[in-house]
Amino acid sequence: MAYTAQKPKIAYDTHELRNRIVGWGVDLDPKNRPAVPKEKFNANTGAHWDFPERQVERWPREKSPEHKFLTPVFGTACPPKGLSGAVRRYAYTFSEGRTAHWLLLLGADRLDVIESRLGALLRGRPDNPITETGVLSEFKRHGIRSRIGQHRADIKHQAVDLLLFAATYAAIGSAVYSLGRAVARGARTDR
């Protein structure tokens, strides 16, 4: 019991475990554990340089101000572009310690989606909500049976997704409507 010195008997007998479970205790000795100690000096990582050669910077690569310089190697996927790109570049003027850094990036992510949807539409490769959400797997992969009669905790808030989804489109719809009305009103006053 926790109220006296002896540890309560809340685990199984180790002899029994050794027989029951393949490999039980093979790494009981911390010497067998590769991440013990946490920092282990290794001169043979495969690197044959003190500092790596530098990758060519083909456009001004955004970087965290918490880095002294642009890292010698970096990813080149999806360079920043458009309005979302401008917001991203601005976000990278704040350190990772600042909430602004992350909120700007999250905001830019949402802008990027809008810009990309429009762009795809204009380029004749519009987004297809049916295929891209993979929602048809609901029918092929037992969408109902996977949820009903189980003890799943996520069923309750999956409704919130629908609500947020609907709310987003309602917001976009009402924005378009108000814009349309404003333009129409402007056109009328011009006459």
């Binding site: 690569r61 890292t71 010698p72």
Partner: peptide
């Protein structure tokens, strides 16, 4: 993705490599 030569990689903390992520130091 790890460089094998930074302060962290030579201590086998490859996930904490300092030379491969320009966007964040964390």
């Amino acid at each position: 993705i790890s460089c094998g030569s930074c302060f962290f990689c030579v201590r086998e903390l490859y996930s904490n490599c300092h030379n491969t992520n320009a966007n964040a130091s964390a």
